[in-house]
Design a protein around this nucleic acid. Structure first.
Length: 189
DNA sequence: CGTGAGATCGCCT
DNA sequence: GGCGATCTCACGT
């Protein structure tokens, strides 16, 4: 969770046959390990889906949700810790044409603004689960100085013991790549 | 611009 | 069998 705000301003690049797209991260959320974070996929231990979370840091944890969307996380903890950072949004800084072709109809601002959209713009499929994000065809550039960041409760996580109270969402204030805050549909209160 | 509902299926209980 | 780390579109302001 200490690492999460350091990813703000970082640039994640993915290269395919079609070309290269890079996104500058503007919004992330941290998720913790077994028994410590009720909002985390790792809360109840290792399962078929979340196995990558328990592995090496720097790898990609990609999962399928809501019957139609893929979300991307960077594993941040040591093996077994099962902590990860959900990449929630950013702006395309390279490969704009390619990103546009992958998201027909979307405005430039919306290309990678949102967890599922970000993966679509980068062209990272569910099958990339487990990939090393620090090696080709990916690259991750981190800014030398930690950026000024804002923090608040996580989006999309339900209340009632679901970990909604954890203020583990971090973003770059006023950055256009920050997704619209939407509380969970079933959030209480 | 904000709210709300539907889509759609794998995962876990 | 219920629900989700979401997105898009429709509609009211």
């Amino acid at each position: 969770m200490d690492l999460a705000p350091r990813l703000l301003g970082a640039v994640l690049t993915h290269e395919t046959d079609e070309g290269r797209v890079a996104v500058r991260l503007a919004e992330v959320e941290a998720y913790g390990g077994v028994g410590e974070d009720p909002g985390s996929h790792a809360y109840r231990g290792m399962t078929r889906r979340n196995g990558v979370m328990f592995g090496e840091p720097g790898h990609l944890y990609a999962y399928f949700t809501y019957g139609m969307h893929v979300c991307l996380n960077l594993v941040t903890g040591h093996p077994g810790a099962a902590s990860a950072v959900l990449l929630r949004g950013g702006t395309v800084v390279e490969g704009l044409e390619l990103a546009r072709s992958r998201r027909p109809g979307a405005s430039d601002r919306d290309l990678a603004r949102g967890p599922a959209r970000l993966g679509l713009a980068l062209g990272v499929p569910l099958s990339a689960d487990g990939d090393d994000l620090l090696a080709a065809p990916y690259s991750l550039w981190l800014p030398s100085a930690p950026p000024v960041s804002a923090r608040g409760p996580r989006t999309g996580v339900s209340g009632a013991g679901g970990g909604a109270d954890f203020a583990w969402r971090f973003w770059l204030p006023d950055d256009p790549g920050v997704s619209a805050y939407r509380r969970h549909r079933r959030a209480v209160g």
